[in-house]
Amino acid sequence: MEIIWQGIKQAIILIFTGNREVYEILFLTLRVSGSAVFFSMLLGIPVGVLAGLNKFPLKKFIIAVINTGMGLPPVAAGLIVILFIWRSGMLGFLKLMYTPTAMVIAQVLIASPIIAGITLAAVQQIDPKLKQQVLSLGANRFQVYWILIREARLPALAAVMAGFGGIISEVGAVIMVGGNIKGETRVLTTAAVQMVRMGNFDMAIAFVVILLAITFGVNFLLTLIQQKEGIGWIRRF
């Protein structure tokens, strides 16, 4: 018990005295997972919307692929990325192994199916008659997608947050492709693991506390959105 209180106290001191290592790791984590979520949105939302709103050959197959991807074990994502980017791999010449970029790619692989899948479910929930209404207002193809995405914006936002929550707390894939290099590819999760290995429990607890704070913040926002009554600013989009 003693060690936990000691650790938490130490953690709070580290966080509020602006310990450089802690903040470097925090910012790298946000940069990596933030850009991963951004690219996952670019990929996941259009795929989810298109697959959800259109009829096309292999639709069921593609939806099954997305759903499988939603449950893709992060370690599998890490392994897939490694096979491509290690030096002897197809993209080895890019020298992406053990870089933040590699971590972003692995996280995109984890998060984009989650975002696509939830978006897909969300747009399928939309009354198909609403699509007819948009068309009859004179909308072209892109206007239709845009308006229906806006209509599904709350679940889509939830999808993005779920994706973010999924990758920021993930450790297996990032340690595989990032290598957990201090000051370069060490993020909150891998830092916590490393600190435990090195016996630095106060640092480990500090990282875990920050991680918990972030995931709590994300989930809190998510809950607010799901209970969406009273969030005026979202309605105004």
């Binding site: 948009v134 009859s136 207002l137």
Partner: peptide
């Protein structure tokens, strides 16, 4: 379609303000 307008049995409104709904067709066109 831009020369016509349809009102269906269900109102089929979008989840925004009343005003935003009323001008939605104008914006689209």
């Amino acid at each position: 379609r831009k020369k016509m307008a349809v009102v269906f049995q269900e109102p089929l409104l979008f989840n925004t303000s009343v005003y935003a709904n009323i001008i939605m067709g104008l914006k689209i066109r």
